[in-house]
Every structure is written in structure tokens, then in C-alpha cells.
Design a protein around this nucleic acid. Structure first.
Lengths: 118, 118
DNA sequence: TGCTATACATCATAATACGATGTATCATTG
DNA sequence: CAATGATACATCGTATTATGATGTATAGCA
């Protein structure tokens, strides 16, 4: 079997990068802590991004050229704003589409709520 | 931060076990190859379970007491049927519910198809 | 004869979310 | 005033797991 899922291996494992890309495609620029709060708010507390996941991922996306950063001091605390580069916007579109499709595919399997367990 | 997502770490990484549990809660008993085909069929070819993933997972679920097996020879080829134990049914219900919720939560973030990229 | 489908299996690897841990400031509250 | 919790960043080792590669074997078809 040479061929794979329509969905990349990364997607099946991880939804963090797509989430970041999705939020940044809606918000222009955001800082790490804000992303954590936004996801919490959007998902009604059901999805809590961990710092140990988020910051390394933001760094990775930046290193790969998908994000740029801008540091701002607010109330003596550092905020590191992230925004999509053009390359990042190019990545965001298929990534978001992919996860949208993935969500729809899950529904094909898990759509009906009540399992038929005898 | 002591507390986690509503969703288990396993879920965020893997959807294979829930898929198996879901199918076996609908079908009574299935063999490995049949599961691969069923997922392919249900998802219109978008999700292709790999043998390298499926068989080890079936073995693990069996070892953990969630599945029982029954081997049958059909056309000189072995079919190993798997079915849920009572313990397995107990696992299936929350696992399916969890993935159903997860799917709905993804929709909260990725629900609107068109990203607002300027 | 070779290819595809059926049908099982194992193993090493790569990817990544997380827990634990650390630093630092500010606001609140007993 | 001291303690707590929220804000805000960071790093690192670990555990988990889907997959590719590989192997065995039968059946059917071109």
C-alpha cells in the first residue's frame, strides 16, 4: 500500500499548529497567553492549550518562517506578538481547510450520538 | 496549571482506538481487514487505516481485556474476528462520546470554512 | 508469470503534546 | 505584610502512537 490518508500524518497527530494558524488568520496578531485564553474561550473551556506545547510550537513556526514576532512591554511584562508572514498565510489556508475536512470526516464516523451497543 | 483538557491526551493524539470501538459497537464482530475497508467506505476514502497501526492496536486492546478474538478459516485464509467484551463496551461508550464531543469542539474553532486572511 | 486483493504480523522511527520546572511582574485579599 | 493567583514568557525530558518497511501466505485474474 503506497498511498496514504487524505490527511497528513501531522494532522492526525496534532491540531495545535492548525489552531494557531486559524486564530492568527482571524486576529492579525496575538501573543502566546492570549492564544491560550482565546482557545479556552472559543471552546468553552473544553480545550486548554498547555504552555509546554504552545511556546515550542510558536518558536518552531517562527523558525520555519511562517510567523514573525514583535515584542512589546505592557505593565513591565513582555508580550511577544506573533503574526502570519506571507508564507504563513500560504500555509494557513490549506491547513485550515484540511482540519475543516477532518472535522467533517470524523462526523461521518462519529456523527450519530448513540452507539448501538446491545 | 494542574488541570487538563476535557479531552485526554490520548484522544488528541489518536483516533484509532475510538474508531475501532465505534465500529465494533455497531457491528458485533469484525476482522482487521474488514475494519480497514469499513473506515475507507464510511469516510469515502478520506481516512485509510494502515495495517501497521491497526494490528498492533487490536492486539493492545485485546491484551487490555477490551476485545476477544475468534479465528475462522475462510478460503484457506485466516480471519481473526474481534468483538467487544463487557469491559470493552464500558470503554466504548465514553470513548465514543469523547470523540463526538471532540468533533463538535473542533467545529467551534474550524466551523466557518472561509478564513479571514487579508 | 506477475499483479492485485485478501489477511495476518512485527519493529524501528519520527513526530509532538505534555508535565515539570523556572523566572518575573502585578493585583488582590486575608 | 504575606500569600495567592493571574499574567507572561521559556526549556527539556518523556510518553505516546501512527506509520513505513518488511515479511508470510493464499486466491484470482490477465
Amino acid at each position: 500500500m503506497y498511498h496514504c490518508s487524505m490527511y497528513s500524518r501531522e494532522l492526525l497527530k496534532g491540531i495545535l499548529k492548525p489552531i494557531i494558524l486559524k486564530l492568527l488568520s482571524e486576529e492579525e496578531k496575538m501573543y502566546g497567553y492570549e492564544i491560550v485564553q482565546k482557545v479556552k474561550e472559543k471552546t468553552e473551556g473544553k480545550l486548554l492549550i498547555k504552555e509546554g506545547s504552545l511556546y515550542p510550537t510558536l518558536h518552531a513556526l517562527t523558525t520555519e518562517g511562517y510567523l514573525t514576532t514583535e515584542s512589546v512591554i505592557v505593565d513591565s511584562r513582555t508580550r511577544k506578538y506573533y503574526s502570519l508572514t506571507n508564507k504563513g498565510k500560504g500555509l494557513a489556508i490549506p491547513a485550515i481547510q484540511e482540519l475543516f475536512d477532518f472535522q467533517a470526516t470524523l462526523k461521518l464516523i462519529f456523527g450519530n450520538k448513540n452507539p448501538a451497543i446491545s
